[in-house]
């Protein structure tokens, strides 16, 4: 499936009145991959996604989805693309299974509705109408509606917002199953762990632009260095430790007996530290390697916390 990208956004600009929501954004989504659009509230995630879905007309730039123009070719595109809106989208008086069955009827080869209801834990909605469902049930119904038509590409706008941890895991599993079966997935999120756990590709956006992109590993490696921590006897001679470490590494004792080694933390560095400890008769306790997270990347790039 290594052919042209399923989504290609170039120089997208979208303004609402005097406010610029998206400001020259580029995005490429690979076929068959899970791509996360990550950013704080108001960064332009939803506007970008909704432009790809054909809801908004770009003020500048081009958007191609499955090689088509989402506005001009909407009729051809809609059966091939699954959409999960951030909220709503269901008749307030409709039952979950009723709405899902209805969406299935609009497609030529839908999934088995009963199996999907079972899979997403919607069976316990029973005869309850949409407005009385819990937030989590509403989210799961919306997700089911996005996939029931067996699309090639799904757009999920904050698919796990408001879900409890168990439902969140279950949604993650579904996203992985979609990818395994060859469905391309674009999701927006402001949860770092979600992007790290699910995405093959992450585009971090802030103030309407992509400020970094790559796999979670690339992004986490690209920023500041990782950290190794341990505790031991206070007042160790850190000068001799730093000499033993590769160039560019550092060592500090922020609190008496608490040590922090910064640098490119790899197995070799860990071995160097422990053998240095052995030579100095130090028993290092609580050794931990702190992996650099997307959260740190975001903080470094923007100077802001991600959670708005």
């Amino acid at each position: 499936m290594e052919n042209e990208p399923v989504v290609q956004v170039k120089g997208l600009v979208k303004r609402y009145g005097t406010k610029t929501a998206v400001n020259g954004l580029d995005l490429v989504v690979a076929t068959g991959a899970v791509t996360a659009v990550l950013g704080p509230n108001g960064a332009g995630k939803t506007t970008t996604i909704e432009t790809c879905e054909g809801y908004r007309r770009p003020d500048a730039g081009t958007v191609r989805v499955l090689g088509l123009d989402p506005v001009a070719d909407a009729e051809r595109l809609r059966p091939r693309v699954g959409v999960m809106l951030q909220s709503g989208g269901v008749y307030s008086g409709a039952r979950a299974d009723e709405m899902l069955r209805h969406m299935a009827k609009l497609h030529a080869h839908p999934l088995d509705v009963d199996a999907l209801i079972e899979r997403l834990g919607l069976a316990d909605c029973g005869r309850t109408t949409y407005r009385r469902l819990s937030g989590g049930q509403q989210q799961r119904l919306s997700l089911a509606m996005a996939v029931v038509g067996r699309p090639e590409l799904v757009f999920l706008d904050e698919p796990t917002a408001g879900l409890d941890p168990q439902a969140r895991r279950s949604t993650w599993d579904l996203v992985r199953e979609l990818r395994a079966d060859g469905v391309s997935v674009v999701l927006t999120t402001h949860f770092m762990d979600e992007a790290e756990a699910l995405a093959d590709d992450v585009a971090i956006i802030d103030a309407g632009r992509v400020i970094a992109r790559g796999s979670p590993e690339q992004l986490c490696r690209g920023g500041a260095e990782n950290t190794l921590r341990f505790t031991g006897r206070p007042g160790l001679d850190l000068g001799s430790l730093v000499k033993a470490l590769p160039d560019g590494s550092g060592a500090a004792e922020p609190l008496p007996g608490t040590y922090r080694i910064t640098g490119s933390v790899d197995p070799q560095l860990l071995a160097t530290v422990t053998s240095w400890c052995a030579q100095h008769d130090v028993m290092p306790e609580g050794i931990s390697v702190e992996r650099h997270t997307l959260e740190d990347v975001f903080l470094e790039l923007t100077g802001k916390e991600l959670r708005a």
Binding site: K105, L111, R119
Partner: peptide, 19 residues
């Protein structure tokens, strides 16, 4: 649901059925 369940097979239903 087993592997291959979600394999894409998109398509609109016939118009009279949708309406």
């Amino acid at each position: 649901m087993s592997a291959g369940t979600y394999t894409p097979r998109p398509g609109a239903a016939p118009l009279p059925r949708m309406i």
